[in-house]
Amino acid sequence: MDYQWDFSAVVTYWPVLLVGLKNTIILAAVCLVLGLFFGLFVGAARYSSNRLVNWPATAFVEVFRNTPVLVQIMWFYFAFPIISPIEVNAFTAATLGLTLNTVAFSSEIYRAGIQSISKGQWEAAKALGMTYTEQMRRIILPQAIRRMVPAFTNRAVELVKMTSLASVIAYGELMHQAKTISIIAFNPIEMYTSVAIIFFVLIAPLSLLVQRLEMKKRKSS
């Protein structure tokens, strides 16, 4: 255990790590926004009583929930370009994989959230003459979303962690930058330790937030 720690390369290559951090945050933010947006529609589709709407949505959700996300990213990077009309670079492939994965998981959160609202709310809104869309938008969703916040924050935590998988297809996020530097500077110990710490600093506040939100939710219910 007489290893001499030397973090000087971490300092020297700090700008490279910062680029990686920026890319990690961009990827996570893009996938979170797109995932939560489309998740609502898929969640609503699964809630629908029309089979033509319900079944494809269910199949989509089950496929993306029951396959490893790394396989999804690899599929979009190596297999999808063969049948895709557009060119797929590492960022597109990672965004596709992570977004669709987030869509699948968040649609389940929307579904559970919507189902947790009592039937009386729907009936009361209907009695006031609201259409289905109005009931959903004005009465159900505002109440349901408040209950879904802890689960969504949890998804965000998972998503930030999952962006590190984009390093496997050489997207220049934090993990990939660290790998590159560690090869140039021969310092895997310091490099990977630093990256773990950076991720921890990035994610720990989010997970603490989840815990507090869940505690608050438990108290209020």
Partner: peptide, 14 residues
């Protein structure tokens, strides 16, 4: 709060 891939690389390379 750290990605599993970072942990794996740490245990394998570091």
């Amino acid at each position: 709060s750290t990605p599993p891939i970072a942990q794996l690389f740490w245990f394998f390379f570091a």
